[in-house]
């Protein structure tokens, strides 16, 4: 693939192999959860890792995607691919508005504004009639792909999720390695300089934001079909925190970091689930450890040790 180096090509091959093999080794629903979060984290990483924008409200787009997909699949009986696409489009539509507002400020303010806007979406979802309030939208049918292939079986939907994940992941990777991606990185490194070279940095930021929120909506929609449920958890600020954690732990600004982070965080939550609030404590400690001592993240650290770009 153009723009990727040989080590990344190898890593891609390994990733695809893992996606194909893992459902026969691990519980497929768990792997699907990891893939959905990996896609979500990769979308988030496009902003923090490559444009330098910390969006602390990405749960809004993920959650809205989940709600829209669940609602259209359940109420209108739309086929899964259309429902998920609508989830992505609604994520992008919200992202267009929020991005347009938030890029007026930079740095910490950007983070606070996205957080506050996402909180507004959360309160909206609590009140709005179509979200089902505290109950959420339950028993969402997985439906039939293209109206023909039933996805009720876990392995059937697994391949759909795998394909969605890989397409989304390649799209994000392609964006990062495109001329557009080069400008994004230039903005991250030195925004005034990028402006002085004649780039409309605000437009670049907005387009990156919309792309990221589109993929986040897709990830949320896919998740809601896999589990048959869309709830307030998906739009809550702790979900925004979780995707930050995944990306930070995996490695900010690395291609494969978000996937690694999603795997580790999801696995950790599974194993620690019986211990209640210890999950939160552990997540907090990982945050602190990552910031103080481990800022490159897992993949970033491996890449630095092996002198590779992953």
């Amino acid at each position: 693939m153009r723009g990727t180096n040989s080590s990344q090509a190898v890593a891609f091959a390994v990733l695809i192999a893992l996606v194909i093999v893992s459902p026969s080794v691990l519980y497929p629903v768990f792997v699907m959860k990891v893939l959905c979060f990996a896609l979500f984290a990769a979308a988030f990483n496009l902003l923090i890792g490559y444009v330098g924008l910390l969006s602390f409200g990405h749960a809004a787009f993920f959650g809205l995607g989940a709600y829209v997909t669940a609602w259209t699949a359940k109420t209108w009986g739309l086929t899964p691919e259309i429902a998920i696409l609508l989830g992505g489009i609604s994520g992008a539509a919200l992202g267009t508005v929020f991005g347009w507002l938030a890029i007026r400020r930079q740095g910490l303010y950007f983070a606070m504004i996205t957080l506050a806007l996402a909180q507004m979406v959360y309160f909206f979802c609590v009140e709005a009639p179509f979200t089902g309030g505290e109950d959420g939208i339950q028993q969402v049918p997985r439906g039939k792909l293209f109206g023909a292939l039933s996805l009720a079986n876990d392995m059937a939907i697994y391949w759909v999720v795998a394909v969605i994940f890989l397409i989304g992941f390649f799209l994000l990777n392609r964006t990062v390695h495109s001329p557009f991606g080069q400008v994004m990185k230039a903005i991250r490194e030195n925004e005034p300089r990028a402006t002085s070279l004649g780039y409309r940095t605000d437009s670049y930021k907005l387009i990156a934001f919309i792309l990221s929120t589109f993929i986040a909506g897709i990830a949320g929609g896919t998740k809601s079909l896999v589990f048959g449920i869309a709830t307030l958890t998906d739009v809550h600020w702790s979900m925004s925190g979780e995707v930050v954690l995944m990306t930070l732990l995996g490695g900010l600004g690395t291609i494969f970091g978000p996937v690694m982070g999603a795997l580790v965080v999801t696995a950790m939550e599974n194993y620690l689930a019986p211990f209640g609030a210890w999950v939160t404590v552990t997540q907090g400690l990982i945050f602190i450890a990552c910031v103080l001592a481990f800022r490159r993240g897992i993949v970033g650290e491996i890449a630095a040790r092996l002198k590779l770009a992953l």
Partner: peptide, 13 residues
């Protein structure tokens, strides 16, 4: 921001 977010999670947890 990230560090203090982690601190908040630990304390509340």
């Amino acid at each position: 921001l990230l560090l203090t977010f982690g601190l908040a999670l630990v304390i509340e947890g």
